[in-house]
Amino acid sequence: MTSFTPYSALLGGGIIATSVIILLLFNGRTAGISGIMHELLPPHYTHYGWRIAFLLGLVLGGFVFQLFSDDYAPPRQDSPLWLIGLGGFLVGIGSRYGSGCTSGHGVCGLASFSKRSLFATLTFMGFGGLSVFVIKHIIG
């Protein structure tokens, strides 16, 4: 059980907004994290620099947070690692096939009023809810 944290959620969301805004304003790029990760693979031989920097920044952002919060360790899911691996595998396939993930569709796409992204966001939330329902309430 986790408690509802509206203020830190809104604050975190606002910081994510500044992140996606500067990336579009300066670089003209969408902060779609699955896309940025994917484009490090061949055959995308150009524009590696900002992508590597962005992913490095994502990790650094976690370190910056830890500088200001004493001994925060995010709880683990505590599912077996093979199950997490299966989840990651489906996240990888699905985000490529569906051209985006929570950041690309759920934030940048919705902020651009894209119908595709609205459809994608509702679909992955619906299926995410369905898989959690099956795991928690049916399999138990």
Binding site: V59, G98, T123, F127, I135
Partner: peptide, 26 residues
Amino acid sequence: LGSATFGVGWGISGFCPGPAVTGLSF
């Protein structure tokens, strides 16, 4: 199909790509 597959994986793992990368720092 892609978004549905993504959703199932997201529900199983509790991670999407951003938190997975940031989670490395922890």
